[in-house]
């Protein structure tokens, strides 16, 4: 038998512990935890992640093994770093967008040819941010 005076609904429970001491002066200033995703991904429904491979973008600060945050919703402007598909190659290429000269440039001390923005060259997205792994990133390679 149940005690008859208990309400059916669960009783409201105060969130957090109740301490007898002085209340935390920081309690009124609590905010959400900072999220790297919120900082780096401005348009979630148009963003994908990718790994950089190679040294052709070192002068703009993208190194082999960096994580690229690619935003497909942005329209590239002069000197944006972009991802492009070139002549039906299997992999995307990362270049600096040179709107004035209608071409894609590398950014490296080594020699890489420019790619003219002509037929067969499609800009797939803008590298809005990149992340450097100063220690190896921990993920399972499949």
């Amino acid at each position: 038998m149940k005690p008859c005076n208990l309400p059916d609904k669960p009783l409201p429970v105060l969130a957090g512990h109740i301490h007898a001491g002085f209340p935390s002066p920081a309690a009124d200033y609590l905010h959400e935890t900072l999220s790297l995703t919120n900082l780096l991904v401005t348009h979630p429904s148009a963003t994908f992640l990718a790994w950089a491979e190679g040294n052709s973008m070192e002068l703009v600060g993208i190194f082999d093994g960096d994580l690229l945050v690619v935003d497909r919703s942005l329209t590239p402007v002069q000197n944006d770093i972009v991802i492009a598909s070139v002549d039906n190659q299997k992999e995307f290429t990362c270049k600096v967008f040179d709107q004035k000269n209608r071409c894609l440039r590398a950014a490296s001390n080594y020699e890489y040819p420019d790619i003219d923005c002509i037929e067969g060259v499609f800009i797939e997205g803008v590298v809005a941010h990149s992340v450097r792994m100063h220690r190896p990133a921990s993920y399972v390679k499949s």
Binding site: F48, L49, A50, W51, A52, E53, G54, N55, S56, M57, I62, D64, L67, L68, I83, Q89, E91, F92, T93, C94, A106, Y112, A137, Y139, V140, K141, S142
Partner: peptide, 17 residues
């Protein structure tokens, strides 16, 4: 095909070369 978007090891490789 690789899990391009849901597995760190499978993310697309972008040619910087």
């Amino acid at each position: 095909s690789p899990e391009y978007t849901t597995s760190w090891g499978d993310l697309p490789r972008i040619k910087c070369s």
